[in-house]
């Protein structure tokens, strides 16, 4: 299993921030959320809508509908390295 088993779609935002927006695969959402919640340091919780914090040293916002925004990674290569760490191949 690798991150491709958990992440269904990756979009990047326009603007200088170049955040990445990840959509988790519905069939693996539960497993992926459990992994994210296990390693995420939460700084701010906004109702039942989102959690802002840090994920393996990367600024992240996790949404209850299974979307994840990652900030400051800069490039697709960095993103993929990050996802390799978040969802290590078993």
């Amino acid at each position: 299993m690798s991150w491709q088993n958990y992440v269904g779609h990756i979009d990047d935002t326009c603007g200088q921030e170049k955040d990445f927006i990840l959509l988790l695969k519905p069939e693996k959402k539960g497993e992926a959320i459990a992994r994210i919640r296990a390693v995420m340091t939460v700084d701010r919780r906004i109702g039942d809508i989102m959690l802002q914090g840090t994920l393996l040293g990367t600024e992240a916002t996790f949404f209850c509908n299974g979307k994840l925004i990652l900030k400051g990674l800069g490039s697709r290569e960095n993103l993929e390295r990050f996802l390799d760490s978040l969802f290590p191949a078993s």
């Binding site: 603007g15 809508i49 916002t61």
Partner: peptide
């Protein structure tokens, strides 16, 4: 305040509301 445009748009999308973010 405290949120990026994409965070705002994603939060609204979770509630079925479609808006745009970016420049």
């Amino acid at each position: 305040e405290g949120l990026s445009a994409s965070e705002v748009a994603t939060a609204l999308d979770g509630e079925g509301i479609a808006i745009r973010s970016g420049f």
